[in-house]
Design a protein around this nucleic acid. Structure first.
Lengths: 133, 133
DNA sequence: ATAACAATAGGAATTATTACTGATATTAGC
DNA sequence: GCTAATATCAGTAATAATTCCTATTGTTAT
C-alpha cells in the first residue's frame, strides 16, 4: 500500500536545474530549459514533478499576487520580496521572525506548520528605471 | 489625460457584497452571488471590478498556494491562515509584526510598501474531520 | 531476467483570467 | 435637465495556468 517513489531522469533534471538558479523560475521557464536536455519532456511532466518535489519537501512552491507560481530550491526558512512593477521575486536575508508561528498558534484552534512572509514594493532595478524616466 | 473613475451599480454591488463576508470569496463566488441581484452581469465585469477595487485600495487581492485568488474587504493590516487540506482562508488577529518592514528595508535597495504574512497548516474544521476519521 | 507498478509523453480538458467590441450608463459642464 | 465625452458594460473570444487521461516506458525488488 505504501507506494515507493521511483526516481526519474526528468525529476532529477528538474531538481538539478532549479538548484542552479537564484531567481525562482516558473513552471514554464523550467520547461523551456529542461527541453534543451530532454527535448521531448512535456509541460505536464514538469508540473507534476514540481508538485511532487514540493510534496516531498525538496523544493517550495511560491504563489504571489504577481504572475504565475514560482519554485524555490532553498527550503530553509527565508522571506521574499515581490516587485509590483516587474513581478521579480527576490530572497530576503535576515528578515525572518521565527517566533511568529508560536505567537500565532496561541489561541488558534488549528495546527500551524509553516509561515510565509512577503514584502511588496519596487525592486532596485525598477527604482532605477523610474528615476531615469 | 487623467481618467475620471465613474461609479457603476455593478462595482458598488460587488463591494457591498464583499463587505458582508468574512470568508474572502473567490471571483467565481462573487459572480454567483451578484447574479442574484444583477442577473446578466458577466464574469469579466466581476474580474475587472475586483482588479479596479484592489487598485483603488478599497479591497485586497490575496494569492495563496491553495486555489484561486481571493478578495478581502478589510484593508487594515492583518495576517491570514491557509488550510492545506480545504484551502480555507482565515483572518488572524494579533499576529501582525509591524516592525518587519522597517527591519527588511535596512540594507535593501528597493522600496518596500507592504508586508503579507501567511500561516499554513490545518484549519480547526479539518482537524476535527481528521480525528473522527 | 522479469514482474509489478510508478512515471512518462502527448494531448485533451478544465480552470482561471484577460482582452476585445459595439452598446449603454455615468458624470461634468452648460 | 440636456448633451458631449468617455468609463463601464455584456457577451464572447482568447490566452494563461494547471490538471487529468491513456497507452507506453522505465525503475526497482526479487
Amino acid at each position: 500500500m505504501n507506494t515507493v517513489r521511483k526516481r526519474s531522469k526528468q525529476r532529477d533534471s528538474i531538481q538539478r536545474f532549479l538548484e542552479t538558479r537564484r531567481d525562482h523560475p516558473t513552471a514554464e521557464t523550467v520547461y523551456h530549459h529542461i527541453r534543451e536536455e530532454i527535448p521531448n519532456i512535456s509541460l505536464g511532466t514538469v508540473y507534476r514533478n514540481l508538485a511532487l518535489l514540493s510534496e516531498m519537501g525538496e523544493i517550495r512552491k511560491i504563489s504571489t499576487d504577481e504572475g504565475p507560481d514560482r519554485f524555490d530550491p532553498i527550503t530553509t526558512p527565508h522571506d521574499h520580496f515581490v516587485c509590483r512593477q516587474c513581478g521579480s521575486l527576490i530572497d530576503m536575508e535576515g528578515t525572518r521572525a521565527p517566533h511568529l508561528i508560536k505567537e500565532a498558534q496561541k489561541g488558534f484552534e488549528g495546527q500551524i506548520d509553516d509561515q510565509r512572509t512577503f514584502f511588496y514594493g519596487t525592486c532596485p532595478t525598477c527604482m532605477k528605471k523610474d528615476q531615469s524616466a
